[in-house]
Design a protein around this nucleic acid. Structure first.
Lengths: 130, 130
DNA sequence: CGGAATCCCACGGGATACTG
DNA sequence: CAGTATCCCGTGGGATTCCG
């Protein structure tokens, strides 16, 4: 009895995958950005200034650093505080919501560090057999 | 003593953010795909056939369904089994590695469901004050 | 120092048609 | 049924220049 009981289809009411209604897709669209998680990780070490973040990420442009920070600020994940010093300084920090997000991401980040070599191996195997 | 002790810079040796060396960035690049997590979530309910997945995700094209499944298979997250029936049927399933990834993603997915309304609110507030 | 404005391109992904 | 093959376009993101 090989091929029985497959494909009873799902019971999904297509409410959890609705393009703009699904929180997961919305959050992933943000988090999936090229620099988003990197910046959030850096800010976990404490508040940092614009150019400090820039120096910590050598291959990011000011354009993308600004834009990513703006998006994070807009989503309430990062706060922005301006100090009116001689040359103005701006400090960014995680909000409580941002801290919470990073805690929630812990599992995924750990998985990435401990399992990515398996993924790499799988890729090599797959690529070696066409 | 307002503005002291900011910006002592990071001690990062730029090893955790190296474009291609950082597992996090690699994994996120994959997971950040438009359909990746959606498909993985569906496969958590058990093995499914190609068109069953397609029907469960109304707004995906066969092109992207194929491509996403291929990428997941290549990374060792999803297995592909062909049954040589009259019209051939192909079954996809999570591998142990894929199951493990989804467990690791649990925290993030939960966060998305329970906190996205806060993000939406933050966006509305931000957008309403230019 | 911390941006905003502009230009530009690669590529992720949609639509459509054909196939074993 | 389960794909492959083309064509095509929007936009994420890089490089550069200018500003308070």
């Amino acid at each position: 009895m090989p091929d029985t009981a497959i494909d009873p289809d799902f019971g999904f009411t297509s409410d959890e995958l609705d393009p703009e209604k699904c929180p997961v897709r919305q959050v992933l669209a943000q988090v999936g950005g090229k620099w988003t998680v990197l910046i959030l990780e850096l800010l976990q070490h404490g508040p940092r200034r614009f150019n400090a973040l820039g120096r910590a990420i050598p291959d990011i442009s000011k354009r993308m650093l600004t834009q990513t920070l703006r998006d994070l600020e807009r989503d309430g994940l990062v706060s922005r505080e301006v100090f009116p010093t001689k040359p103005p300084s701006v400090q960014y920090a995680l909000t409580p919501l941002g801290v919470d997000l990073m805690k929630a991401m812990g599992g995924l980040l750990d998985w990435a560090w401990t399992n990515f070599d398996k993924v790499k191996t799988a890729r090599d195997v797959y690529d070696a057999t066409p």
